[in-house]
Structures are given as C-alpha cells and as structure tokens.
Design a binder for these strands. Structure first.
Length: 489
RNA sequence: GGCCCGUUCGUCUAGGGGUUAGGACAGCAGAUUUUCAAUCUGCCAGCAGGAGUUCGAUUCUCCUACGGGCUACCA
C-alpha cells in the first residue's frame, strides 16, 4: 500500500486544473446490458469530445471471485461497439488496480481514517438484529432508520467488542439537518436533506466496502472529474457527496442519464427480448447501428437528423442536450437502422460475416468464395440483420424441402405447372452461356411461347427452384445456383 | 410510507408564451416491380388532467393522476 492511496484529510486540491476524466464502472454480473452500453458510450463520446480520458473500472465488491469471464465478456462487447479506454483492468494505468476487489485495503484504510476523525463509527449490530428491528417497525407501518445504537458506544465498549472478536460494519456518521445540494447536468439542482438518510454502512462486516463508499473513494482517487451514469444512481448521489465531504474533497460534476425501459415502461429485462450487446451481435446487428440507436435514446442533435456516423456523433454530441425523460427500447427502430447500415455496408464485409457462419455449417470455402460475391448484391437490400441474411440465402447452399402448401400448388394445377417446369428444364438446358441475361431472354421467351403471363410463370419457377414464394430476383438466383442444380430442382 | 425524478403522435424525439406543433420508426394507401424487399409519394396520429398567471398557455406556477428510481452489510 502506497501512501497516496490513503486520502489525506484537509488537503483539498485548491483550484488545481484537471483535464477531463470520466469512468465507466460496470458491475460484472454477466453481460453488457443495453443500458450500461449506453452509459459507456456516452462516457466515451464525452471523453472524446472533451479530449479527456475514459477509465474502465470493475465494481466487483460483492460478486465473488469467479467473474473473470464476465469481465472479458463486457470488455469484448465494449470493444465491439468501438468504445476504447485509456486506463482499465486489461491495460493498467496510473491508478491501478482497476478492480475494486483488488482495492479492499484502500477502502478499509480510508474508512479507518474516517473512524479516527469521528466521521464514521463501528457498528456491531448484526444483520439479524437490524432485520428484527426493521420487521418490528414495519408491523406498525413505520420505516426503520438506523437508530445509531453503536454511535453511542463508549471507547471501552468498542475495545471490548473488538477484543471479543465481535464482527462489525463501519457506518458513516451522517450530519444532522444538512441540505445536500448538487447541480446535475441533466436534472438541474437537486437538494436533499440529510435527515432522510441513515448512517449508512460503508464497510461490511466481511471487510468489503459498499458501493456508495467504494465508488466515491475511487472517483476521488482516480481523479474523476465528471461522473456520467444511469439515473438509478441519482438517489445515491447525496450519500456519495457525504463521503466526499467526510473525506474533504471536491465533488465532481454529476450527469445522470435517463433510464432505458422495456416496451411496457417497466425496467428493461429479459422478457422484453434481448438485452445484452452480445445477443445483438450474435443476431447480426452492426455496432454502428447500435451506437446510432443508443445515441438517440435521450439525445437529439436537431429536429431532423437521425442518422449519425460515429465521427458525426463525436463531433455533434453534447452532454447538455440530453433530456430527462426515460425512453422505451424500440426494437423495430433498431432493426430499421441496422438495415440501413447493412445496405450501405461494404459487400465484402457482409460476405465475410456470412462466410463465417456458413463455414461452421460445413460449407466449403471454395463454394463460399465463388457464390457469396454474387449473392450479396441480391440480398443486401432485403435484409435487416445478418441472421436474416443467413436465413434467406440458405437455398444457395443446401437442398431445399418443399413446404406442404406447395404440394397443393403443384397438384392443383398439375398439367399447367408440370408443363411449365418441363419446358423450362429443356430450354435452359440449351443455354450455352449460363448468364443472367441469357437466362432472362430464354425464360421470358418461353413464357410468351406458353402464352402465360410472366408473373404467373415466375411464380411457378420460383416455387420450384427456391422452395418458397419469396426469393431473391429469379434470374440471378438461377445463375448462381448453376445449371445443374436448377434442372435438378 | 418517505425522499428524488419524470410525463409532446403507439415508439424515439424537435420546439417553446401567439407555430397548419416539425422529423424519424411503426401502421395504412399509392407508384415501381418476376416475388419479397429497397426506393419514392401521400395519409393516420400527440402537448396526461385540473386550477392559476396572462390579452393569450403545449410552453411559466401549483395541485392531482400515472410512471420510474432510491429507501440493503446489491450495484
């Protein structure tokens, strides 16, 4: 433990000029949640825009030790979104370590400092005792606020308790009747009286800090100038300010971001669909689409623009323009955005993504390389996700099975349809150069010859060749399939 | 229960004391088309309710309703 990790009381940095430092501090409980991703993204945008630094800090004070996987999952998702950071658990930095589980001693030492300064005190009331008190009061419809029993313990009692090995938590002594005021960038002035707060626990009896303490201590230590986080922390902010004040440090600028809710207005959860960035990546969404969509949740540049590249976003984003209203997550709009970005994406890029998927399905690289470049232009305009693309392109690589409804389709008009198919087979067999143009001339001529509308004719051929009433443009499709496959089908 | 925050088309939002309240997604209709998309055109649709301030409130103030958050030895 180096000394600079223990905060010196009475040493406010007077007017020292800082460059902007923001942080994203996820709790590694699994994957990167949509809401957290937005928070991370806004932090990143703000850091970029202001030429500051983004710090990634893992808040794992209560998660146990087995979370390596989830940390790397979160890191992967962040990187995939294009978010980069200047300091973090994976790359280190001036204020390492960046995992709170590795900083336990820092919190204890600072808590001890507070105890010595009589700004915090040991509490020997165990959870059972507190629960009992809580329960008793709730039966009378009253709400329990810690009664400061242990604040009044004598020095001797405390020494005796410690000597007897009684476990204790550490509580912050909340000043009485004090207005805690801060100015939130998006919510404006927030004022709360300290009387509604109890002496909250800052160190648990297992020695681990609680969130409101560790977050504040680290934000001080890591010289965070702007705290940008979800609105769910707005109510926690006064407590953290109390920690700043107990430690005699200046508070940073707070910016709380409105929540992202599910379509029914309740907290975004699994029953609303996918909520992890990972899931969207797997579904075949593009990071540009997600970033663009996320940016539009609670923020707008002007009255018209909805499409923003990352560069435009870093240029135009402004934290002051964030609104207060919680927003509902709209999957449809995300889909539309993704379709837009897919349409403007590089064809070889899409081919690469599809190629990966088909390789795992056992399709040879050769076949992929020859067909995919022809296929992509056919489907590019018709897909909204890579999943969809994969789906629609399946008959190019695998045998098709005709759905039951087609049995009727062929049976109902047997003569005509069979005639069409037989004629088509023999006609295309004669095509010398199997190109789109020749196929088209050939088939159009045939339809005329058979005296049926091309619309009708195409319907039959499509069903026969593709096993579906919907397909990419038929001539191109036939070309890619090749003469043999077409005739076989 | 207490405290904090919010409420403009179904959704994301712009606006802001006098506007035909603007855009986007979705929906609907049409054009185009070998299907489906894409594209283009048009349509539908909104200031939560009530008081107050004002010549005039969607905009300012208050109240109510509704929604969200916090109120843990979770973060």
């Amino acid at each position: 433990m180096t000394n600079n990790k223990i905060l010196n009381l009475k040493e406010k940095e007077n007017g020292k000029k800082h460059s902007i430092r923001v942080r994203f501090a996820p709790s590694p409980t699994g994957y990167l949640h949509i809401g957290s991703a937005r928070t991370a993204f806004f932090n990143w945008l703000f850091a970029k825009k202001s030429g500051g630094s983004l710090i990634l800090r893992v808040e794992d004070t209560d998660i146990g030790r087995h979370m390596e996987e989830t940390v790397s999952l979160i890191i992967d998702s962040l990187k995939w979104l294009g978010i980069t950071w200047d300091e973090g658990p994976d790359i280190g930095g001036r204020f390492a370590p960046y995992r709170q589980s590795e900083r336990t001693a820092i919190y204890s030492l600072n808590a001890e400092k507070l105890i010595d300064a009589k700004k915090a005190y040991r509490c020997f009331c165990g959870p059972e005792k507190l629960d009992a008190k809580r329960k008793k009061l709730s039966e009378e419809n009253l709400y329990f606020k810690y009664d400061r029993e242990c604040l009044h313990l004598s020095e001797d009692d405390i020494r005796q308790n410690i000597k007897n090995g009684l476990p204790f938590a550490v509580r912050l002594k909340v000043p009485d009747g004090k207005d805690i005021v801060f100015n939130d960038t998006v919510y404006g002035e927030i004022k709360v009286n300290s009387n509604i707060l109890e002496d909250f626990i800052i160190i648990r009896s297992n020695g681990q800090p609680t969130y409101n303490f560790s977050a504040a201590v680290d934000d001080i230590l890591m010289e965070i100038t702007n705290v940008i986080r979800g609105e769910d922390h707005l109510s926690n902010t006064p407590k953290q300010i109390l920690v700043y004040e107990a430690l005699e440090k200046d508070i940073p600028v707070f910016t709380h971001l409105p929540m992202i809710l599910g379509s029914d207005g309740s907290k975004l959860s699994k029953r609303h669909g996918s909520i992890s960035i990972e899931a969207y990546r797997d579904e075949g969404f593009l990071p540009e689409a997600i970033d663009n969509y996320l940016a539009l949740l609670g923020w707008a540049y002007d009255e018209k623009t909805t499409l923003f590249s990352i560069d435009e976003l870093t240029d135009k984003f402004s934290i002051e323009a964030i609104n207060k209203k919680p927003s509902k997550f709209d999957y449809e709009k995300l889909l539309w955005l993704n379709g837009h970005y897919l349409r403007s994406a590089d064809e070889s890029f899409i081919a690469g993504l599809l190629s990966e998927r088909f390789k795992t399905k056992g399709v040879e690289a050769n076949e992929l390389n020859s067909k995919l470049p022809k296929i992509i232009p056919l489907i590019k305009e018709r897909i909204k996700t890579i999943n969809q693309a994969e789906e629609t392109v399946l008959p190019f690589f695998f045998d098709i099975s005709y759905p039951d409804e087609f049995k009727d389709f062929f049976a109902g008009r047997t003569d005509e349809n069979i005639k069409i198919i037989e004629n088509t087979v023999s006609s295309i067999a004669k095509i010398e150069e199997f190109t789109v143009k020749n196929i088209e001339t050939c088939l159009r001529a045939l339809a005329e010859e058979l005296n049926i509308s091309f619309k009708k004719y195409a319907e039959v051929i499509r069903a026969a060749v593709w096993g579906s009433k919907v397909s990419p443009p038929i001539f191109e499709t036939i070309e890619v399939l090749g003469i043999k496959t077409t005739i076989d089908r």
